[in-house]
């Protein structure tokens, strides 16, 4: 089986770097930062594969580079190194380093292949545009020009995510956190993405609401045959959703493996600490 997404030595440095940190590729850093020029190495040589229908977990302490990684893959940030290959297993495209594409092609790819859900709904939703409009945006960008059909599709997605249709024309500003998250999910699914990027989607929600959101994601993932990248602090979430998991620290991948193996037989000292501190 061919990976859907192949990430190879992906790196992101905030700051210009200096003689001390540039060549060593971060060897002399304090945590993820250069002590001389204060550049932050948010992601360092991150490599992994994401397979069709696979859910890959990303865990790691705060600041380890998880969100940066997601933003790099969603073309919201420019990588400072590395390559990303998107290899549609359907054979519709040749493998290509998508980071080398121009802005237009990147946006097309983002609109067609990716869906993203942010921890903070403010990032993912236009709070003053109706819930239906939020879901419709990518359809409009993709050339849908029939209000009736757009509403039908947006309605379907909102129904799937358990937003009452009676609230479709309301702005999500006044929705509860769980509802906003579900509108985000509906929006992320609108373009029938191949890859879903979920960054801490349940953090900050009540336990029962968390459960509903998790359920929803799991069911959608299976029903729609999506691949997903799930960033979470919560190892319980990771256990429930992810087939495999990678562990990040100071911008690097320190360990990767089957999720149950990572949780029950962690190899790296840092992973052992992470897993045991949960108990």
């Amino acid at each position: 089986m061919k990976p859907l997404l192949k990430v190879s030595r992906l790196s992101k440095r905030y700051g210009n770097g200096c003689l001390f940190c540039a060549n060593e590729n971060g060897a002399g850093l304090v945590g993820n930062q250069c002590p001389h020029c204060k550049s932050v190495f948010a992601c360092r040589d991150v490599s992994f594969d994401l397979f069709p229908d696979e859910v890959l977990g990303i865990v790691g302490e705060s600041g380890s580079g998880k969100s940066t990684l997601v933003r790099l893959l969603h073309f919201e940030e420019e990588a400072t190194g590395g390559e990303v290959f998107l290899n549609a297993s359907t054979g519709e495209e040749k493998s290509q380093n998508v980071l080398a594409l121009g802005p237009f092609a990147k946006r097309q790819l983002r609109n067609r292949k990716f869906g993203i859900v942010y921890q903070n709904p403010q990032m993912g939703l236009r709070m003053d545009v109706s819930a239906g409009g939020n879901v419709a945006e990518k359809l409009l960008a993709a050339g849908w020009r029939n209000v009736g059909l757009i509403r039908e599709r947006a309605g379907e997605l909102l129904k799937k995510t358990e937003i009452p249709l009676s609230r479709m024309d309301e702005a999500p500003r006044n929705f509860s956190g769980g509802m906003q998250q579900r509108v985000q999910i509906a929006k992320a699914l609108s373009n029938k993405p191949r890859i879903l990027l979920l960054d801490e989607v349940t953090t900050g929600l009540d336990l029962s609401v968390q459960a509903r959101v998790l359920d929803l994601i799991k069911n959608l993932q299976r029903e729609l045959k999506l691949s997903a990248l799930v960033v979470s602090h919560d190892l319980g979430v990771i256990r429930l959703l992810c087939h495999r998991t990678i562990v990040m620290r100071y911008g690097r991948v320190v360990e990767s493996g089957l999720t149950d193996q990572i949780l029950e037989d962690p190899q790296h000292p840092y992973t052992q600490l992470l897993v045991s501190s949960r108990l």
Binding site: L258, D260, Q261, E264, D265
Partner: peptide, 9 residues
């Protein structure tokens, strides 16, 4: 059993 299932390496 966990080794066979590869929950353990």
């Amino acid at each position: 059993l966990k080794c066979i299932y590869r929950t353990y390496l």
